[in-house]
Amino acid sequence: MQDISAIIAGCKNWNRSSQEALYRQFFGYAMAICLRYANNKEEAIEILNDGFLKIFHHIDSYDTSRPFKSWLSKIMANTAIDHLRSRKKIVFTEDITQVYELGMPDEYAISKLTCEEILQLVQHLPPAYRTVFNLYVLEGFQHQEISNMLGISEGTSKSNLFKAKRILKEKIEAITSMNISGPGSIGAAQPS
């Protein structure tokens, strides 16, 4: 594995082998981010490739004093949001001023699912819920930041997060209760 600073320097000079090295080194990490926003693998690959194009075009703006993965992560998340916006897949629900915190399923229920099954459940959320859930829970943005990124109110961000958590909780509980009480494996249960 090449030194990241040498790869970045090569990318700044539009060196194709450096661009390929960067793509290969961060493909898995970037793909995991894109899959959280996409409906399927093909859409995630499209987002990923658009994101890497943005990285190559804007690599001069990367601040080398900060972690590269954080910069890449932000570009991939923003590219996914742009992708969903361009396809008019994001429709946010109404703004609510008070959202009560919804507990997630217990750790036992979640531990019965594989990472792939949890990812599938997240992918089956409506795009607006999925986007806010990813930005808040997985990327660590606050509601004010999310509202600025998506052009929505903080209340709408909170509402969409609440609804995403509620849907995930119901689906996880349904899947794990089917596996406890019925035949078959967790993999046999399909999220709706």
Rank of each mutant, 00 (worst) to 15 (best):
I172T: 07
S157A: 14
S157D: 04
P127G: 08
Y136L: 06
R166P: 00
S157P: 00
M178S: 14
Q190P: 00
T93Q: 12
Q123V: 03
N148Y: 11
I175E: 00
Q190W: 00
N148S: 14
I90K: 00
E101M: 07
L135D: 07
S153L: 11
A128P: 05
L84C: 10
F133Y: 14
Y100K: 13
E101N: 09
I180N: 04
N160F: 05
T114N: 02
L150P: 06
T156F: 03
Y108G: 06
K171C: 03
M149R: 13
V91E: 14
C115V: 15
I175Q: 02
T176R: 02
G187L: 05
T97Q: 11
Q142I: 15
L119D: 07
G103I: 10
F133T: 05
I172Y: 04
Y108L: 11
P105M: 08
S157E: 05
G184I: 00
L119W: 07
K112W: 00
Q123S: 02
F133D: 01
I110E: 07
A128V: 10
L84S: 04
Y100S: 11
G151A: 08
F92H: 08
Y136F: 14
S185P: 00
S181W: 09
Q123M: 07
I146G: 03
E139P: 02
E101Q: 11
S181A: 04
F133I: 09
P127W: 05
I180T: 07
G155Q: 02
I118M: 13
S153M: 10
H143D: 12
E173S: 06
V132A: 01
T97A: 08
E101W: 09
I186L: 03
Q98W: 11
Y136R: 15
L84F: 01
T93C: 09
I175C: 04
G103P: 14
D106E: 12
I90C: 04
A188R: 07
I90N: 01
A164L: 03
S86W: 07
V132M: 03
L113M: 13
L168W: 03
Y108S: 09
V91Q: 12
E170T: 11
N160S: 15
F162Y: 10
T131V: 08
E173H: 08
Y129L: 04
I90V: 13
L138P: 02
K171I: 00
M149C: 06
P126G: 06
T114H: 07
Y100I: 15
I152C: 06
Y136M: 08
K165Q: 13
L84P: 01
D106F: 06
R87D: 12
I110L: 10
L150C: 10
T156W: 01
I186E: 01
D95N: 15
H83P: 00
N160E: 15
N160W: 07
P183R: 01
I167L: 06
E173G: 07
E107I: 04
I167V: 08
P105S: 14
E117W: 02
V132N: 03
L135S: 06
A109Y: 02
V122S: 01
K171N: 09
K112Q: 13
I180E: 08
E117K: 12
S181V: 00
K163F: 10
Q142N: 12
A128F: 03
A164D: 04
S86A: 13
S181I: 00
Q120L: 12
Q123F: 01
K112E: 05
T97W: 04
